[in-house]
Write a protein that binds this DNA or RNA. Structure first.
Lengths: 195, 195
DNA sequence: CAACCATACGGAACCGTGTTCCGGTTAGCA
DNA sequence: TGCTAACCGGAACACGGTTCCGTATGGTTG
């Protein structure tokens, strides 16, 4: 734990320059591949696009989940930070919750296959699932609690449950223009309200 | 179209006895495998369990969807027939819809991986998806229409959309005891009601 | 009852994907 | 400049779906 902590040599040991370069390149290639072919784009494709061998991917990102998390971390964190901000915005608690869920849904439906991956029982995606839940459930719980305390929604739904339900509703949101995930989520949220 | 139509030699051409036997055996083996390992149990496993070669599966059921449909056809048809019965049962239209959806959800959550397969974009499952939608959407539409006419629910939701939403909510219903698909579906249905 | 052949069979082979292994290369340092 | 730990690329392996082909057999006909 004793660290000099100056500059890039902060933690553990500074990586070699080529390693850092490759990691960066891989992140870009992966982001591009995810947009083009969804989050389960073939490993070989990503490696080829980055101009590296497949083993290099596994060295930097042991599981696909690590790669996905690395690519989307910024956006997830943005979502995390938006929660308290919305609560403080003076809107009704239910309104804040609805707007926050909207952000989450927007994020999910614009990433091909991400919603599917989130709910997949594939062990490769387990840590992805965990990361999303770890980060987002507490935020959701806060918004949910506020709405319950305000007497606006039924009190028997857990944040985890709601997040999974919303995530599930987003599956296949692209692919079929007849299915509008946003509308279904809206209905679900309406179902939460006390009447 | 000219048929003698007597006994088992009704349509096209009577299959060989061993072929019929194998088909039967395969259906049983597949049903067992689906229970044990979900609807994407490895083809080789099913073949082994039935004591046949893999090609025999492909001859009888060209795609996995055909096999799944064959295994669950009875239950799907039961669901189809339950729709009108519930409508006629004197319950409120929304109540009938809710009870019918319950049947559907019960069916889905007890079949490992079926809900996932239904929403999968995997081409292998396309005809499965189509079969379910072809059979169930009309029934759902009838129930939905009745509830709309009775002024009990909002009129802007299509049967297809509702079915997909419900199907999506059932994904992963086994696997995680913290997620209760039935409850989420209940919330969704509540969200349909006019207030 | 015997011979024939369309039908059906089993398993090997093939293909695409994820994952691991190994011999060669190189960044960083003395 | 030379050394070495870290890193790299691609071949090799594992696994599951799918296809192919030589063989066996149910059913029919003479």
């Amino acid at each position: 734990m004793t660290e000099i902590g100056s500059g890039p040599a902060s933690s553990a040991r500074r990586k070699r320059a080529d390693a850092r370069r490759n990691e960066e390149t891989l992140l870009e290639a992966a982001a591009a591949a995810f947009v083009a072919s969804g989050v389960d784009a073939p490993v070989r494709d990503i490696a080829a696009k980055a101009g590296v061998g497949v083993a290099t991917i596994y060295r930097h990102f042991p599981t696909r989940a690590d790669l996905v998390v690395a690519v989307y971390r910024h956006q997830v964190e943005a979502c995390v930070e938006a929660g308290p901000a919305l609560l403080a915005s003076g809107d009704s608690a239910h309104g804040a919750l609805a707007r926050w869920i909207d952000l989450f849904v927007d994020f999910l439906v614009t990433k091909h296959g991400l919603a599917e991956a989130l709910q997949s029982d594939d062990a490769t995606f387990a840590t992805l699932h965990d990361y999303f839940l770890d980060r987002l459930v507490p935020v959701c719980a806060e918004l949910l609690d506020a709405a319950v305390r305000a007497g606006e929604i039924r009190p028997d739904i857990e944040a985890l449950e709601l997040m999974r339900g919303v995530g599930n509703l987003c599956i296949g949101a692209d692919r079929d223009p007849r299915y509008d995930a946003r509308r279904m989520v809206e209905v679900l949220l309406a179902g939460l309200r006390l009447r």
